[in-house]
Design a protein around this nucleic acid. Structure first.
Lengths: 343, 343
DNA sequence: TATAGCGGCTAAAACGTTTCATCCAGCCGG
DNA sequence: CCGGCTGGATGAAACGTTTTAGCCGCTATA
């Protein structure tokens, strides 16, 4: 039961303990014959390395953690997949922690991770205030990379997507399509992403300077149900004041809007055009495929992981970087006048 | 930089090393005054436990792993959330690993987890053959609980959902609605779930004994795109032979079917009724809300975690159990004749 | 022939905990 | 006054690695 350790392997192979370690870590420094004897011993004893001991000696573990706001959110699952890829290529392991938007859980996770002496932490922190927990980690020498939050802090790297630009892209597109009454749906505005996307949309509108009208409907959260409710509310407006296009802060809201509008007999995009945000998998699968602003999610994860590994590298010549990706508008039927009459 | 260790804390508080350990692990065995002195030292030095050393001594870690086929699949994310809850309540930590349906990656993960001496592993293994890797773990005394796969093996616990029953529920419902030409869409049949759901549907049809017709269209995988393709194919049939209802092996396929059918001008459920499987979040958010067979996903995760923790408990009186949950049919518009004329 | 270098290996220290056997002082009952 | 007991603290061993300094025997070079 008690798994064989390196000492037993050594005894079994008739070599010293250090030699076994060499076979494991620097195989080329040991003579082929000896090496083979050791390998045989390892396999007959079913030896498997004890990582705790290794870590203890090394002073830190070989795992990297990512703390996300919601494991079930497609945005984060894609970020995780991207990060995973890079981390695994580097021979390390990625552990996924879920804060569930709960700062107490976040704190608890960070404490545990610190106890484990993880190599570094990728995190989308709960809230936007100061981050004492993260500062503590950084003080301890554990690299932290912020994902899609709080870009620009001096003592850590970050990756993010330019949400202001995303808002612009969406708005420019809708203006190009000739819309004059447009609504922005999303909330709460305390979420930076929601606010930034709106800011971009408003800026684009301002610049184009034609008298188009932008109405904001703040939702309580970013769910399908919230989208449905928002759409219901829009429908209480007399048809002449009703927006001919809506730009939603995320795709869930957009899907809710789409569902409610079609259920009430309005056609998309003929009566109301819709642009969402995030380009989740189901955007393309919706009854009317949804135009959406796509974020390079897995690249966000990949880059975050790369920055982290770079910082964790022994050489101390690391300069913190803040990488900002550009989103991309994916036009589908829900906002495309040229296609809306087809089929 | 080099984080303070227990020895420095001891020196700082003027006590011995063992006493600090006692403060940490059995606070009540140390006198209040001493205890306070130690706690003060801990906080002024910013001491944080080194988990590697702890694990090394203990012989195993306090983390539990869950290895899923796809982190981005809503089914698994919910299972993860359920498991997480239980594991965290027990003061342990859940690490999520992603095999991505790739048995090489699965193996690599298991090796790493074994090196880490994890407390136990929840896993949905890739494939259905024998499981040498898992057997190895079990031999080493690391408990394994199978999630939604390979129920009934003697040397490990498992949790699953009765897919045969799920197939029955769906088929019974469609028969109740008066359908006679029904199609089952899903594949490949080598996936047990796909086969079981079909088996249940076929059995229900058999038992009801009216001459209804069940056609099977095997898809290459379980994606929205596959659903669209399958629907296209159905549409090549002359209308009189075309099924009036389809039962899909999962909701992604069902959503694909829904999209393709409505794009081609067929009405759901008037022309074709649809029942999916899994009841993912978007089932309810689809243009025509999707009837679906719901699995108690988070409970699956919770129970799996409970079984694991129970088995990992020192007392060796563990009997392996195989828990099977019953799915539940959620009827929505996509298959509901009573409602289909509303709105 | 002496010396330096090198390939291959060993022995021992160190990492930071937890635990277990002791030890000590004080107290109580006899 | 003594023996035993108890609450509270101590010291050392043990967990399984990695790493470093050093040793040995051999070959190539001067």
């Amino acid at each position: 039961m008690a798994t064989a350790n390196i000492k037993e392997v050594a005894r079994h192979a008739g070599v010293s303990l250090g030699t076994v370690s060499n076979v494991l870590n620097r195989p080329d420094t040991v003579a082929p014959a000896t090496r083979q004897r050791v390998l045989d011993a390892i396999s007959t004893l079913g030896y498997v390395r004890n990582d705790s001991a290794r870590q203890l000696r090394a002073g830190h573990s070989r795992t990297v953690a990512i703390v996300v706001l919601d494991v079930a959110n497609p945005f984060f699952t894609d970020v995780v997949r991207g990060a995973e890829q890079v981390v695994e290529e580097a021979g390390a392991m990625l552990v996924v922690c879920n804060s569930g938007e709960d700062s107490a859980r976040e704190r608890r996770h960070l404490e545990l991770l610190e106890e484990q002496r993880v190599r570094g932490v990728l995190i989308t922190p709960v809230g936007h205030g100061p981050q004492p927990n993260l500062d503590k980690l950084i003080d301890r020498g554990i690299p932290v990379v912020l994902v899609d939050r709080g870009t620009g802090r001096a003592n850590r790297c970050s990756v993010a997507v330019d949400d202001v630009l995303g808002g612009r892209l969406a708005m420019d597109h809708l203006l190009d399509q000739g819309h004059h009454r447009i609504a922005y749906l999303g909330g709460p505005l305390s979420i930076a992403q929601v606010a930034d996307r709106y800011a971009g949309a408003a800026a684009a509108l301002e610049e184009r300077g034609n008298g188009a009208d932008l109405r904001v409907a703040v939702t309580t959260n970013l769910t399908v149900a919230a989208g449905r409710r928002a759409a219901e509310e829009l429908l209480t407006l007399p048809a002449r004041q009703r927006p001919t296009a809506v730009f939603c802060a995320n795709d869930l809201i957009a899907l809710g809007v789409l569902q409610e509008l079609t259920a009430r007999g309005l056609r998309v995009p003929a009566d109301v055009a819709i642009v969402g945000y995030d380009d989740i998998e189901f955007a393309d699968a919706a009854a009317v495929p949804l135009s959406s602003v796509r974020q390079p999610r897995d690249q966000l994860g990949r880059t975050a992981a790369q920055l982290l590994l770079e910082e964790a590298e022994p050489g101390d010549a690391h300069r913190h970087r803040h990488v900002v990706f550009q989103p991309e508008l994916v036009v589908r039927r829900s906002s495309d006048h040229l296609r809306r009459t087809r089929r």
